[in-house]
Every structure is written in C-alpha cells, then in structure tokens.
C-alpha cells in the first residue's frame, strides 16, 4: 500500500485549472523525483500535498486512509514535512535551536537546552550530517549544511513523507553530493521523499521513480532504472503534440 496517494486531484484558480486530475503516489522508503517546466503544476501539487492548498476535487490518502488537510499543520500531524527552498532557518540561532524551531522540548516550563542539544546531535548523527558543534549559529554554515539542517528538522519533527523543494539549487558540486547522499540515507531509514527539482541529473542519481508533470497533468512516469536523461527531458518539454498544453502563468508562483 502506498504511504501517500493523491487521486484525481483538481485545483482551479479563477478561470484556470492548475491541476486537471492528478494521480500521484509515493511508496514507503521510495524517493520520487517530481519534475516539470515552470507552470506545469508541480508547485501547486506540492502545496496540495503539504496542506497549503485544498484540492477542489479528488482525494488525499495517507497510508490508505482519506485525509482532509485544512492547513499545513494538519499535514504535518499526518507525517508530511516540507523543506522549502528558503529553508526556514533562523540564521542567528544555533543548529540545535533550528532543529527544534517552534517545538522546543520543555522541562518544568523551561526550554530543556541540554536535551535539545543531545537530540539534535542524535538526529545529525543518524543522518550522517557533519556539523562540528550544535551550538554554532546556522549563519556560519555552508549552503549544503544549511539544507541538511532543514531536512534534519523535517525528519526530527516526525516527517514520514519529506517534500524537498529544489534541494540542490544554489549549492556547489560537493555540497550537492552531500545533500543527495542525505536523501539516500532518508530512504534507508524508510522515509519517503519527494524531490521537486529542475536538475535531471540529480533526480536520476537519487530517485527510484520520476514523475513528470505538464499542463496540470502527470504526463509521464518512469522507473529511473529504465529511463535516460534525454527521455525525461523529452517528457518535460513535451515532445508529443497532444501533451503540448501550455501551463498557464498562474502557477508560475513557485514555492519561494
């Protein structure tokens, strides 16, 4: 049974339909690459999955059970965690404080800093993220380390399905590899991961399956083992004339 399923999801903004009946599923322990040109609808789908948008039609299921997400909080309570491109880190605060942002453990009404540091270190160790000290402010870390800390928070706060928005954009090659290997580690721990990315190479390197969207529909799905970069790019740009519905500009509001 899939961990997450979206069936026949439609979402309309005014006169334009951003999602025109999308079926999408993720198995436990699977890494899915979600690709598509700007305006293809992948950001809208992401926002539906994480509870930021409510679909007009269609059903969302988590572990087979139908769910209605009224807010990202509902989705988070179901084990869906999102890491946006801007990461949502507080630069001035420590690594530990960022892993626990908004969910600080308390003891006698006070923030239990000792437990926070110990648990933050534990998460970092499990995910094999290398940070010399959890007391360091995240402002002093590299882009790759910051991405990893944002992912660590998503996992630590109970994410079973982790959505990553462009996790390797704006990173150097070595840091990109660190993030990709972190995604592999997440899979090893049985987490399901959805990677939204424009980078075909990275998706093919880390994902089990690629889902390509075009014009508000899923235009193709390929097992990574049985496809090539050229084929995926072909799906994204839409070689078949029938699929050449141009995504309307309304979905160009990418997850910032």
């Amino acid at each position: 049974m899939p961990l997450f399923e979206a069936v026949g999801v439609r979402k309309r903004f005014g006169g334009v339909e951003a999602l025109r009946g999308v079926d999408f599923s993720v198995e436990p322990g699977e890494v899915v690459g979600l690709m598509g040109d700007n305006g293809a609808g992948k950001s809208t789908l992401m926002k539906v999955i994480c509870g930021a948008y409510r679909p007009d039609e269609g059903e969302i299921r988590m572990a087979g059970r139908p769910q209605v997400f009224r807010s990202p909080r509902d989705a988070a309570a179901c084990g869906i965690a999102v890491v946006y491109q801007n990461l949502g880190l507080v630069d001035q605060r420590s690594v530990a404080a960022n892993v626990f942002l908004g969910q600080e453990p308390r003891r006698f009404g006070l923030v239990d800093t000792r437990r926070m540091r110990a648990e933050a270190r534990e998460v970092l160790t499990t995910l094999r993220i290398r940070i010399p000290s959890v007391r360091m402010p995240v402002a002093g870390l590299s882009g790759g380390q910051r991405q990893c800390i944002a992912i660590a928070r998503a996992v630590h706060q109970g994410g079973e399905l982790v959505l990553l928005d462009e996790p390797t954009a704006a990173l150097g090659p070595e840091q990109q590899q660190n993030v990709l290997s972190l995604i592999r580690d997440l899979r090893k721990q049985g987490k399901a991961v959805v990677v939204v990315s424009h980078n075909v190479d990275h998706v093919l390197e880390v994902a089990d399956r690629v889902v390509v969207m075009r014009g508000g529909l899923v235009s193709g799905m390929r097992d990574v083992a049985a496809t090539t970069a050229a084929e995926v790019v072909g799906l994204i740009v839409g070689n078949a004339p029938a699929a050449a519905h141009d995504g309307a500009p309304h979905t160009s509001g990418e997850l910032a």
């Binding site: 990202p72 949502g88 507080v90 630069d91 605060r93 404080a97 942002l101 908004g102 969910q103």
Partner: peptide, 17 residues
Amino acid sequence: YDVYSVGGNPSAAAGAG
C-alpha cells in the same frame, strides 16, 4: 525562544507554527 525566532526570520517562525 519564540521572540528570537520571530525576530530572526519571521517567515521561518510562521512556518514552524
């Protein structure tokens, strides 16, 4: 902690509930 978070990065704080 909330005071530091909200002042440091308002959108991250909102995202963290």
